[in-house]
């Protein structure tokens, strides 16, 4: 019944993303051009001849006026090209594609972990206000937003790798130098299982534990806090009292009546946390030498790899906006009161 309208709404929202993305792209582009000095000069160092420099600048369109550079960048982008990275010497889009799965796997598991803990914790805290579980929920939420994520990662590494020796150190996705031939899904854990390589699966899981926990713990805090607040409000609502007055079991009242109402703010905060995790993830990847986008962007920043920086910011912003798009559509689907 409402599904066609929902589809139309989704289409409209997707179209609306384009102008914002263009402006964001322009901003990023402008940012990389206002940096003093020509990037080639900044990167090339003194031992490269002037002719070679001019040639490099020409390839990167850096000898043209600003607006032309932007137009050319857009043209290349429409063909899936994002310029050649100064450090890897291949197209940035290819770099990003290679590194995306590592990041995606890490962030996905971290978010799953965060939600899997925060939701029950927040709900129990809302049900039993001022109980021990409520105290735990509060402690988690205030500690999670107070700890620097990179420090938490270091402390965990010290305890579980250096001191106890239980988990692998900061050496990336497998905890060893094994490289995986051709990815199927890009998720190392899933690919290993698909190929029946149980040993690799275990290694991948072990390597994931600490970075996932680090990122997940920080992401958990706001979700648990929001869940507690909205569930507490929902449980005190009139419609919950109605459900109880009809003798519906408490489990049904909590999960099907209260939670269904609380879901929208919880989803919203989760999306916001996801965006936050995209930033925190950079720091986590640096600590754990995780071969993903964060690590890539870090190296790009250190070596002033302009096309790479631009590509990274663009991709992350795009992902961020897609998440919000998904959220808006989910909200529209979940809440009959939203007009669209």
């Amino acid at each position: 019944m409402g599904s066609t309208r929902l589809l139309l709404y989704a289409a409209r929202r997707i179209l609306l993303i384009v102008p914002v993305l263009l402006v964001a792209l322009f901003l990023t582009f402008a940012l990389t051009r206002i940096v003093p000095g020509n990037p080639v000069d900044r990167v090339a160092g003194p031992y490269i001849s002037l002719e070679r420099r001019a040639e490099l600048k020409h390839i990167a369109y850096l000898d043209r006026p600003f607006y032309e550079q932007f137009a050319l960048y857009l043209r290349d982008l429409s063909q899936g090209k994002m310029g050649t990275s100064y450090t890897t010497a291949q197209d940035v889009s290819k770099d990003l594609r290679q590194r995306f799965p590592a990041t995606f796997e890490l962030v996905t598991y971290a978010m799953l972990f965060a939600v899997a803990v925060a939701l029950p914790l927040g709900i129990s805290a809302a049900i039993k206000k001022d109980s021990w579980i409520d105290s735990i929920a509060r402690a988690v939420s205030v500690l999670g937003v107070s700890m620097p994520i990179f420090w938490l990662g270091l402390m965990l590494l010290y305890v579980f790798f250096y001191f106890l020796g239980w988990l692998p150190g900061p050496v990336g996705r497998t905890g060893s130098a094994i490289r995986f031939a051709e990815p199927i899904t890009g998720f190392l854990t899933i690919d290993a299982l698909l190929k029946g390589d149980f040993d690799l699966f275990l290694k991948a899981v072990q390597a994931l534990i600490l970075p996932c926990f680090t990122l997940g713990f920080v992401a958990m805090a706001p979700i648990a806090r929001m869940t507690r607040a909205v569930m507490a409000e929902a449980l005190q609502s009139d419609y919950v009292r109605t459900a109880r007055s009809l003798g519906l079991p408490f489990r049904v009242v909590v999960l099907r009546h209260a939670l269904k109402n609380a879901l929208i703010p919880i989803l919203t905060i989760t999306a916001a946390v996801y965006g936050y995790a995209l930033g925190g993830e950079v720091l986590v990847e640096i600590i754990f030498a995780w071969p993903g986008l964060g690590q890539y962007s870090y190296n790009a920043l250190l070596s002033s790899d302009f096309p790479a920086i631009q590509g990274f910011v663009l991709l992350v912003t795009f992902v961020y906006m897609v998440i919000y798009l998904a959220l808006d559509i989910a909200t529209a689907a979940l809440d009959p009161r939203v007009k669209y």
Binding site: V20, L21, V23, L278, V282, V316, T317
Partner: peptide
Amino acid sequence: VLQAFPRFVFAMA
């Protein structure tokens, strides 16, 4: 537009 970027990534840039 400012908020179209994730916070920390924007600060980094």
